[in-house]
Design a protein around this nucleic acid. Structure first.
Lengths: 121, 121, 121, 121
DNA sequence: GTGGTCTAGACCACT
DNA sequence: GTGGTCTAGACCACG
């Protein structure tokens, strides 16, 4: 697990995004127990309060669940995670297309651009 | 000209982005004189100082040039504008692909997704 | 730390120059934490916004770095500072020589002038 | 005669400096009649009012003299011009030395720097 | 009328 | 307490 931060946005929001990705992309599996807040904070080299705030956001988003004295767990609702993944992807794709249109690139332009990049893989 | 703002980021940065788009996409042409700072501020319904800050950033980016007491002008270097347009597009595409990969979508996935959307046009 | 201002140029630019000198000449060391914007403003007897603007310029020049909510720090890249010092010195010497030539003084004239002054030290 | 302007300072002040140099360095001789304000303005591509303001400053400095209906002339007091030349040179040298000291360069440093440059002439 | 600067004062998020 | 942002309002030099 690897955390890096830009300096122009709240750290806790960047934590949320990165942790969300770890869950959504399957690096944490449904039902997995998370490391303690303190450990996560140490790994990310942030203040435990900051990590706590990030985890709270994830809980609000139903991606993690706190069991009172037992710790925090990734939700075991795999379908929900998949749904969130699709939702996030769709949002990003839509946003991307809007931005490309604003720059004057059509769908066709973009696809041809992607095809070109694909060949280089 | 139309300005809209989200409230999760500084207004002046959103102004920079939107004005940059107006220039890069050709709604302002190279060499065009911009409306006065005060007029632009009125149109965007922001304080003149805020607009001034945004325009200063555009000047730092060499997209506009100030003629003292005479007004602000879009750079007359059309090639530079084109270059910036390409640069911005490339950056956004790369960032998009990175994010998609983090979500576990391959190039092929993305292209098929775009093809689907295309049919709906 | 001591700030004095002429009134023929913007205060914030004079602040930039003076702060730059403090950094470049080593009165602030690489990695040093700067006093808070408010404190610096109080010392210089200027509005905090004015000081903020000056510090932003120094950040654009990569001489200082902001850690959000934590303060502003002199860059810890000592080599960069040295480089800027050399650059600034060279620029000033070149500009000086150009001006002297425009006034019709040769290198020899200048050196003899400096030798004379030296004796008075 | 050649006029070039930066964009960050009043044009009339830059005119004053450049015209002053032309007089002090002897490109205009004592007693010479100057071109008309209109012609000078055309050469410099500035508004005649701007040129007029610059010339007024030069008159305040006693470097030029207006003869009512006859035009403007460089002062015929050659000694005064020489004196101004020395004065300006001295001021610039002093300022230069101060700046070099602030950067931590001694007289000796500067002289050795100049000697080096001299060899390259 | 143009841009530039400065002040005063306020509010905000973050840690 | 830290930096960042924004507004309101004023004044200035310039052309």
């Amino acid at each position: 697990m690897n955390f890096t931060f830009a300096n122009d946005r709240p750290i806790y929001l960047q934590l949320v995004e990165q942790l969300e990705l770890y869950i959504i992309s399957g690096q944490f599996s449904p039902g997995d127990r998370l490391p303690s807040v303190r450990d996560l904070a140490a790994q990310a080299q942030v203040n435990p309060n900051t990590m706590q705030k990030a985890l709270q956001e994830l809980e609000d988003k139903r991606l993690i669940i706190t069991e009172r004295t037992n710790g925090k767990f990734v939700t075991d609702d795999a379908k929900f995670i998949t749904k969130q993944r699709t939702k996030l992807a769709t949002t990003k794709i839509q946003k991307f297309l809007t931005e490309m249109q604003e720059l004057g690139l059509s769908h066709a332009d973009i696809i041809s651009h992607l095809e070109t990049l694909k060949r280089k893989d």
